[in-house]
Write a protein that binds this DNA or RNA. Structure first.
Length: 382
DNA sequence: ACTCTGATTCAAGACGCG
DNA sequence: GTAATTGAATCAGAGT
DNA sequence: CGCGTCC
């Protein structure tokens, strides 16, 4: 669930903290990505017709591999250096929330069998999507794939979002890319949304800077965390009748949850019993993460061509020509981005009018040619 | 009348051919 | 023995 | 673009 309504709250109250950027402007940047959410979405949507998905000869699902493979190549071709973060054990506080979700899944499973009896195709597809689960095997498959591609992987001790934020705080990556707003609450200094969208849709990348958010809301980080807890997070209930707007007002007025509790009308607002807001706060403020020394070095290497063929083609039935071509793409992308990095500084905003230095000329000519192919007489909707 | 919350529902990838 | 989404959009209804 | 395919 992330933080309830946080996007809208920020759009309304801290618009200057969000900026639109072009996908291309992240060339050469190291970006931390939470893997679990992506895998989940791939399983739901990639190659799905009814309850069928992409599978290998043994009948095991391969949608997540197809999705992860193509998406990662797209990032590499854009000169982005992704590091994928996998979830570890969820914190205790999250378990009751997870129990709720479990029962929802059970409902969906019932709905699904009902839809099967009736034979309503649309319902079957709809409900089957809701029963999707990410297994350990799916996660292991993706880690293996990424390592073969030369892309670094980190297994977080607990929440992946928290580990992403830590990497960004310590400067090991430029930003965290996710659709989950929790990243900000964990204190990721720079946070990107819709990094993955631009290919299929025309949504620009939305960049958030936590320092600007705090500045514009006129809050310190501790207060921002309290605001998120009051708005509604995964770790504990919120106070009935208080949403984002009211929470912001109250925090500005009283400064902390403790002071709010002392000052609000308890007849009007029912405070949950044994409300563990302090523990929730601690999870956001000091989450369990690996320090730089505790996780493997973040390094981007050459793809293991033989390994990729074995894994994707031999074990999972991928088309060998496609895989071979994809490997070429990875190698080309790697050369291009490592060259570019050595020869120039990259500013957050790429501007096309900058004079080009001699050595780059042939290169950028190639790039321009590629981009030109995409040029279209694009009209907005009517 | 207006503001806010909370419940409900929905959709979700990436590519290339024509 | 082992998995537990999200947020955006929309609407109804309560509170101010 | 719209649509079928990827495995």
């Amino acid at each position: 669930m992330g933080i309830k309504g946080l996007t809208k709250l920020l759009a309304d109250n801290a618009p200057k903290a969000m900026k639109e950027h072009k996908f291309e402007s992240y060339f050469g940047r190291k970006i931390a990505i939470d893997a679990s959410m992506s895998i989940y979405q791939f399983l739901i949507v990639v190659g799905r017709v009814g309850t069928d998905t992409l599978t290998n000869e043994a009948g095991e699902v391969t949608s997540h591999l197809q999705g992860m493979f193509t998406r990662t190549i797209r990032l590499l071709e854009a000169g982005i250096k992704p590091v994928y973060i996998f979830d570890g054990q969820p914190p205790e506080l999250k378990k009751q929330e997870l129990a709720k979700r479990f029962s929802k899944r059970a409902d969906a499973t019932e709905d699904l069998s009902e839809a099967r009896e009736i034979g309503n195709k649309e319902d079957i597809e709809k409900f089957s999507k809701r029963t999707v689960k990410v297994t350990k095997q799916h996660n292991e498959d993706c880690k293996r794939l990424l390592r073969l591609m030369g892309v670094p992987v980190i297994e977080a001790p607990s929440e992946a979002e928290a580990q992403c934020a830590a990497l960004c705080k310590s400067g090991q990556v430029y930003a965290v890319a996710s659709e989950d707003m929790d990243s900000l609450t964990f204190g990721a200094p720079r946070f990107l949304r819709h990094l993955m969208d631009p290919s299929s849709r025309k949504v620009p990348v939305m960049e958030f800077e936590i320092s600007k958010i705090l500045e514009e809301l006129n809050l310190i980080m501790d207060q921002f965390i309290d605001l998120c807890i009051l708005s509604g997070c995964d770790y504990c209930e919120s106070i009935r009748g208080i949403g984002g707007q009211t929470a912001l007002k109250l925090i500005r007025q009283h400064g902390s949850i403790e002071n709010i509790l002392e000052n609000i009308n308890k007849e009007r607002y029912q405070i949950p019993e044994n409300w563990p807001y302090e523990q929730a706060r601690e999870l956001f403020k000091n989450p369990l993460v690996f320090s730089e020394k505790e996780h493997p070095e973040i390094k981007w290497g050459a793809p293991d061509e033989e390994g990729l063929i074995t894994f994707l083609v031999n074990e999972n039935g991928f088309n060998i020509d496609r895989v071979t071509k994809a490997i070429e793409k990875i190698k080309t992308a790697k050369n291009k981005s490592s060259q570019g990095r050595l020869e120039s500084f990259f500013k957050p905003v790429a501007n096309t009018s900058t004079p080009i230095k001699r050595k780059e000329t042939s290169e950028s000519a190639k790039e321009t040619a590629i981009k030109k192919a995409k040029a279209a007489g694009g009209k907005k909707k009517k």
